[in-house]
């Protein structure tokens, strides 16, 4: 009697978008070694999707609570730079360095959470401000050479850089970051769909008043999702710096956009209360495939900025229209059906 569920339909649409994109690029670029459709290229796409996907788990939570976090890119740079400092100036072991990085990420999240949930500053403006604060802090603690010029700090000890590599060490192998992605997505999805906390995230995003009435601490949930995003960011930063084998001040300049784009394409509605982590994963794969294809087509890489921006707006426009329509249908159907 319900026909197809709204969420299922939205999932099919994002999978369809990804499939169309893959087919399109396969036709345009071709299959086979060095082409679009090949094992190593598909792995490369998943690898590119990994860091945005990992951060996307946190972003998904944030957006489901009807928030937004624009500061993730800057937070990545800050986490990276904190680790670089520890690497350069202390003799602390690598795991401690990573731990410090994670703590930095959590702190960034806590700051965002406090500004948004406690001070009640509009999400986009609060995180826009922390975006510039985190980036500036990165510059403040940046590693400099004897002349005081900022340099990129190499972090090339093998017990760290292996994280940026593949498991078997060959270029065609499975990168560690993909495993981390899988772990984050699975745990992220389970937490979201199968724990009380996950249910609260939806409740807060869909109806704050009702959530409060049901005894949910709305402020705490909102704060927590930013802290979780901070954690995801720090893990993303570890894998990024491990792969680049260095930390720079410009790290993550693209990552303000990618996780949000991934979530939006994957069906996480900005109005809050809908979408999930798997959707964001599909969105991240879509974005990575898009980037990859644009590169392989020898187009100016700048086209990807245009395409991404346009796609986001189109998807959001579609979602807004679709949502309004489905709500109306549900209402009319309810009115007609009554007892049946």
């Amino acid at each position: 009697m319900n026909g197809i569920n709204q969420n299922t339909l939205r999932r099919l649409i994002s999978i369809g978008m990804l499939a169309v994109l893959l087919v399109l690029f396969t036709i345009l670029i071709g299959a086979g070694s060095g082409k679009f459709l090949s094992q190593e290229n598909l792995i490369a796409i998943v690898r590119d999707a990994s860091v945005p996907g990992i951060i996307g788990v946190g972003i998904t939570y944030v957006i489901i609570t009807s928030g937004i976090d624009l500061s993730t890119g800057s937070a990545i740079a800050l986490v990276g730079m904190v680790m670089a400092n520890i690497y350069a100036y202390t003799l602390l072991p690598i795991p401690i360095m990573i731990l410090m990085g994670i703590l930095t990420g959590l702190a960034c999240g806590l700051v965002n959470g406090y500004i948004v949930a406690r001070m009640e500053i509009p999400e986009f403006i609060g995180t826009l401000a922390t975006m510039s604060v985190f980036r500036a802090l990165t510059y403040v603690i940046a590693i400099r050479d004897v002349n005081g010029v900022i340099k990129s700090q190499p972090m090339n000890v093998s017990q760290y850089t292996f994280l940026g590599n593949t498991i078997d060490g060959t270029p065609s192998g499975l990168p560690y970051v993909c495993i981390a992605l899988a772990l984050f997505v699975i745990v992220g999805q389970i937490v979201l769909r199968h724990t009380r906390f996950g249910t609260y995230i939806y409740a807060v995003g869909a109806n704050k008043k009702a959530a409060t009435l049901s005894g949910i601490n709305v402020e705490r949930v909102r704060m927590m999702v930013y802290v979780i995003t901070g954690f995801c960011v720090s893990i993303g930063a570890v894998f990024t710096t491990a792969r680049l084998q260095s930390a720079t001040t410009a790290l993550g300049t693209d990552f303000e956009f990618s996780p949000i784009a991934a979530a939006v394409v994957g069906g996480v509605a900005l109005s809050g209360g809908s979408g999930d982590v798997v959707g964001t994963l599909i969105g991240a794969l879509f974005m990575a495939a898009l980037e990859n294809g644009v590169r392989k087509l020898d187009m100016n890489t700048a086209f990807q900025y245009i395409i991404k921006g346009v796609i986001i707006v189109l998807v959001v426009m579609f979602d807004a229209t679709y949502k309004a329509r489905m709500d109306r249908i549900a209402k009319e159907k309810g009115a007609k059906e009554g007892l049946e």
């Binding site: 937004i68 900005l270 245009i306």
Partner: peptide
């Protein structure tokens, strides 16, 4: 028309303008 938050639309379009300039 679509009742979409302004920050999102302008956030997406900033990427478009950047891309156009780069192209």
């Amino acid at each position: 028309t679509f009742n979409i938050p302004a920050f999102l639309v302008t956030f997406a379009s900033q990427s478009v303008f950047l891309g156009l300039s780069m192209v």
